[in-house]
Design a protein around this nucleic acid. Structure first.
Length: 422
RNA sequence: GGAGAGAUGGCCGAGUAGGUCGAAGGCGCUCGCCUGCUAAGCGAGUAUACUGGGAAACCGGUAUCGAGGGUUCGAAUCCCUCUCUCUCCGCCA
């Protein structure tokens, strides 16, 4: 959520910056509703002040029959207050609705662009390996090795669900443990294992709701949702809290499955593991002081990159342009891994600074010291990494001419010493 | 799923025949004093949000005692609904 006062004072500039995300933006209704809100509030509060004073006077009068005049006078005032408050509630609801559907302001360093084609490549790590045979896509490799079973996944549930078998299942689990160990032991994140189902407040806090309800799985009969990313439960750990400045920055990591309806993705990535309704991810989440959030974003990005480096997977880092930015983000870097079987780079991590956008929605604040005023923290998160897509990258990058797949060295200890899946 | 108890400020905990309660007291914390160090002691202070005025310091108003609604001139206190926590029983990985 944006800061209402900042918007009021910088309406033009805010409108311009929001427009760089693409599409028309008008804040005229915001301005009117916000102004009306303050008018009504003033009127109502003035009458309440009057009533409070009168009530106190009435309480002093011993003979209540003497107070009848004031009491009936105040009865009128209370009626007026009730009317004003009813209108105020409507106005505030509308204002809240507007505020909850406005996306974050892109950071000044976010390149302005019209589509994902305008994302900027920042750097590349390792050139794609050359194959002396034609590299296959992972779904062919995985099916041939008997470790991925798309047909049975579809039988059990439906399209975009996959059954992992044997060494495939073990590889997925190895990656989860490898990533968690790296981030906790080396990068000093605290491991969390949150609920995979959250309530509406949590979804609103991080910005999935109210705008993107169609993308979420909702439990029938309950106002609970399957999480689309660990960002939701982990960021909401501190919803409604005032943290101690001395405890910042907080680094959390969590493995969770992620559930996405992928509405609007019909016909896209229909083969293989790239786009699933359920996939595993290890997430990195930070709560930091506002002044530190950009250096912290660089560190978080480096922590995610480290996973790919240790696994020896070629990748590039993209700086997202304004049009490609997620709803809540001010600044995002995507890490894209090289997939030789598909001859392309694919997103495997997305690292973002949300500044105070989520903190304001979820009311996550900190107090620098005992007598300081509470301030909103900045929240950040990034995938560290998407596990299913890492399996994809390993199968495709480490495939051999005979159809087997070499296990990257750091994973072997997690695979019971296995060096090759064949 | 059944029966009961409860939700008050950073924490503990008073407060229910409605008014002087933003809320006693204690702990904690901050500042000052005192003590040769430490501990103890003494004094003062210590919620948040919105809103009006002000360059600011600050001053004023309103709201908040789990959430929402109701009764009333007036609600932490009365009524209704919901949520959560705890205890017992049942069921169960």
């Amino acid at each position: 959520m944006l800061d209402v006062k900042f918007m009021r004072d910088n309406l033009e500039a805010v409108e311009q910056r929001l427009k760089t995300r693409g599409g028309a933006v008008s804040l005229a209704r915001f301005r009117d509703v916000e102004t009306r809100r303050r008018e009504l509030l003033q009127q109502s509060e003035n009458l309440k002040a009057l009533r409070n004073k009168a009530s106190e006077e009435i309480s002093q009068i011993k003979d209540k029959s003497q107070a009848q005049g004031r009491i009936s006078e105040m009865r009128q005032v209370s009626q007026q207050i009730k009317g004003l408050d009813e209108e105020l509630a409507k106005v505030e609801e509308e204002l809240q609705g507007i505020m909850l559907t406005l996306p974050n302001l892109p950071h000044p360093t976010t390149p302005v662009g019209a589509s994902e084609a305008d994302n900027k490549e920042l750097r590349k790590w390792r050139d794609p390996a050359r194959f002396d045979f034609t590299p296959k896509p992972h779904w062919e490799i995985g099916e041939a090795l008997g470790i991925l079973d798309f047909e049975r996944g579809a039988k059990i549930t439906g399209a975009r669900f996959t059954l992992y078998k044997g060494s495939g299942a073990r590889l997925e689990r190895a990656l989860i443990n490898f990533m968690l160990d790296l981030h906790t032991d080396r990068h000093k994140y605290v491991e969390m294992l949150p609920p995979f189902v959250v309530n509406r407040e949590s979804m609103t806090g991080t910005g999935q709701l109210p705008k993107f309800e169609d993308d979420l799985f909702r439990l029938d009969g309950l106002d609970y949702f399957l999480i689309p990313t660990a960002e939701v439960p982990v960021t909401n750990i501190h919803r409604g809290e005032i943290l101690k400045g001395a405890d910042l920055p907080l680094y959390y990591t969590a493995y969770t499955p992620c559930f996405r309806k992928e509405a609007g993705s019909y016909g896209k990535d229909t083969r293989g593991l790239i786009r699933q309704h359920q996939f595993n991810k290890v997430e990195l989440v930070k709560f930091v002081r506002p002044a530190d959030s950009y250096p912290e974003l660089d560190l978080l990005l480096a922590n995610a990159e480290e996973v790919l480096r240790l696994l020896g997977l070629p990748y590039r880092v993209m700086e997202l342009c304004s049009a490609d930015l997620g709803f809540s983000a001010a600044k995002t870097y995507d890490i894209e891994v090289w997939l030789p079987g598909q001859n392309t780079y694919r997103e495997i991590s997305s690292c973002s600074n949300f500044e105070d956008f989520q903190a304001r929605r979820a009311s996550i604040r900190f107090r620098e010291d005992e007598q300081a005023k509470p301030e909103f923290v900045h929240t950040l998160n990034g995938s560290g990494l998407a596990v299913g897509r890492t399996v994809v990258a390993i199968l495709e990058n480490y495939q051999q001419a005979d159809g087997s797949v070499i296990i990257p060295e750091p994973l072997r200890a997690y695979m019971g010493g296995l060096e090759r899946i064949s």
